[in-house]
Simulated scan of single mutants.
Amino acid sequence: MIARAWRWAALALLLAAAAALGGCAAQTETLRRAPPAGLGPRVELAATPFFPQTEYHCGPAALATVLAGLSVDATPERLGEEVFLPARTGTLQIEMIAGARRHGAVATRLPGTLEALLRELQAGHPVLVFQNLGLSWYPLWHYAVLIGYDLERAEVMLRSGTTERLVMSMRTLEHTWVRAGSWAFVALPPGQWPVTAEEKAVVEAAVGFERSAMPTHAAQATLAYRSALQRFPDSLSLRMGLGNVLYAAGDKNSAALAFEEAAQRHPDSAPAWMNLASTRAELGQRDAALAAARRAVGSGDATWAERAATLLASLEAQAKDSSAPR
């Protein structure tokens, strides 16, 4: 990541060259010509904390910036020990997201559009962005935190590097961000979600957070799933995830209800019926377990057919054994 003095000295030239070679900033021009409905002309999250980076540590500094905004006690130095990879002299994107989740935040990828970034800012969410501040043939990877925009002036404001309030043209942000893969995420407390988050990203974030939070923070993981289902109530993955986290926390009655809801909404899902059958069986609800297992077998899900049949045979054998005279 950018750090050495000579790199910062050359940055202005590289950015100018990048903008010149990048072609038309299509998204910027569209946003300026026809601002989307409901998008305000200007936003700046001035209260966003700032941590100037040290050498190669733009990742830990940017991550500390978004986490500190959530009142998480995580300094760049501490995060550097967790996410910085000396062999790469930088931080991988997967480590950035994992680092946020380890500290209790739900990190969710955003759609790859400039409009999505601006709408998150309007919602009060600083956005961690990944940029290539160099050229395609000479990349200079960099993490920064987007904190504001001005559509009339076509500018954005960032916490970046050693600059607390870096004003950059929106065109340049678009070029450098798109050249780095249009990668960005928002970190929020469990129960809250980015306003632009899509279902796939929410599922990935909820599952990732669950794996980081369990078993010590089951309530937080449960909250993440329940709040996600308020937005995407028909998501099979989210309902199964909720059932699994409730089951792991020892709340089998609530887990059974979650699996039942998943099965009812997705009757062709053998795993939903199988989880329901197994959980009902553990609760001593033999008839309900057998009924669910039969639905799993009859779901037509070829991938799970053998396992569903095995489960049904096992439950039928248990029922037969328990009803035999003693």
Rank of each mutant, 00 (worst) to 15 (best):
S254V: 11
W273S: 05
A248T: 12
E198V: 07
S237F: 13
F232S: 06
N244Y: 06
L223W: 14
P215L: 00
G241T: 08
F259V: 02
P271S: 00
G241R: 02
R265K: 13
A213Y: 04
A218C: 02
S212I: 11
R239G: 08
R231Y: 11
H217L: 08
Y225V: 07
A224G: 11
M240Q: 15
N275M: 10
R211E: 13
H266I: 08
T216N: 09
A205S: 07
A218L: 01
F232I: 06
F209D: 02
P215G: 01
E210M: 07
P271K: 00
F209W: 06
V203E: 14
Y247V: 01
Q220P: 00
H217I: 00
V203P: 14
S212G: 14
E198P: 05
M214E: 09
F259L: 02
E199T: 10
T279E: 04
E199K: 05
A205T: 02
A277F: 13
W193V: 00
T222K: 06
G208L: 03
M214V: 05
W193Q: 00
V195I: 09
E199A: 10
R265A: 09
L236D: 15
L276K: 04
A255S: 12
L236H: 14
T216F: 03
A206K: 01
Q230A: 09
K252R: 15
G250N: 15
L257A: 15
L246N: 14
V202R: 08
M214N: 10
Y247H: 13
A248D: 14
H217N: 03
S269V: 07
A224Y: 09
P271T: 00
A248H: 04
R226E: 10
A256E: 04
F209V: 01
R226Y: 08
W273Y: 10
G241P: 09
G241H: 12
V245P: 09
H266V: 02
L223M: 09
R239Q: 08
S278A: 11
A258M: 01
A218E: 01
D268V: 02
P267A: 00
R226P: 08
A258L: 02
W193C: 03
S235P: 13
R211W: 07
R226F: 06
E261R: 10
L276R: 14
E210V: 01
N244H: 11
H217R: 11
A272Y: 03
D251V: 05
F259H: 09
M274E: 03
T279V: 13
A270F: 13
A270E: 06
Y225L: 03
W193E: 02
A228C: 09
N253F: 15
F259W: 15
A255W: 11
V207Y: 14
S227K: 07
N275L: 04
E282N: 10
A263N: 13
F232G: 03
A228T: 04
Q264T: 12
Q264I: 01
L229W: 11
M214F: 08
A272D: 09
A255Y: 12
Y247C: 01
T222Q: 04
W193G: 08
R211A: 13
A258I: 06
S278F: 13
E204F: 08
A255P: 14
K200E: 13
